[in-house]
Simulated scan of single mutants.
Amino acid sequence: MDVQVDREAKKLTKITRPPALRIIPPLNFCPVEKQLYRSGQPSIINQSFLQDLHLKTILWLASEEPQEDFLDYCSMNNINIEFVGMINDYNYSNVNPWDSLSETTIKKALELICNKENYPLLVCCGMGRHRTGAVIGCLRRLQGWNLASVSEEYRRFTGARGGRILVELLIESFDINTIEADPEKLPDWLKE
């Protein structure tokens, strides 16, 4: 069967400039589960993308304060920021940013993740690699993932520089039995 295309009826145009609204996800953005996301710290260029997520909570894992425009965006959009793992502002001597990544920090983060009242929820840190990876790795263990799969997912986000063995050891040794959650508030994907 011959199909003739009326070239006059089908007018094509060239795209000469990008669209006015750009939808750009934050660095290392990825869905983790339904309405649970991970990324590096969002910036001003990510705001259109974040709007579409309708976030209720952002779990901030970095040891430093977020950028001012990020705080303003959250305030204007009624997004609750849960600061987990901030370094004590009053002790500047011998500050090791990894001191804030501990079993206590991870436990607090996971208990916030285990409450569906915080959803949609974004877990983030500066680059979305190690702190975020540690929390998501421990969440995967809580979900019953095997350690090889947990390590593979963690390494996928660390880039060419690779993962940190101390983070992987922390994920492996984390006691998932310390997590306390209200069964009525668990996300559906975490229920037995």
Rank of each mutant, 00 (worst) to 15 (best):
C30P: 01
P31E: 04
P31V: 06
V32A: 00
V32W: 05
E33A: 10
K34S: 11
L36E: 02
Y37E: 00
S39T: 06
G40N: 06
G40W: 00
P42R: 03
S43E: 12
N46E: 05
N46K: 09
N46S: 01
L50G: 10
L50R: 02
D52S: 14
H54V: 11
K56S: 06
I58E: 00
L59W: 01
L59R: 07
L59T: 06
S63E: 11
E65K: 08
E65N: 10
Q67W: 05
E68G: 11
D69R: 12
F70P: 06
F70T: 02
D72A: 12
Y73S: 00
Y73F: 09
M76K: 15
M76F: 09
M76L: 14
N78P: 12
F83V: 12
G85Y: 06
G85K: 01
M86L: 10
M86Y: 06
M86K: 11
Y90D: 15
Y92W: 15
Y92N: 15
S93D: 15
S93H: 13
N94M: 07
V95W: 01
D99M: 06
S100I: 04
S102D: 10
S102N: 12
S102A: 05
T104N: 13
T105W: 00
T105I: 00
I106H: 00
K107F: 04
K108L: 04
A109D: 08
L110T: 07
I113P: 03
I113L: 07
I113E: 04
N118D: 03
L121G: 07
V123N: 07
C125Y: 01
M127R: 13
M127Q: 14
R129E: 12
H130A: 09
G133H: 02
I136P: 08
I136C: 10
G137R: 11
C138G: 07
L139A: 00
L139V: 05
L139I: 01
R140S: 04
R141S: 08
L142I: 08
L142A: 04
L142W: 01
L142V: 10
N146D: 13
S149A: 13
S149R: 14
V150L: 06
S151P: 07
E153D: 15
Y154F: 10
R155G: 10
R155M: 04
R156W: 06
F157M: 10
F157Q: 07
T158E: 12
T158Q: 14
G159D: 04
G159Q: 07
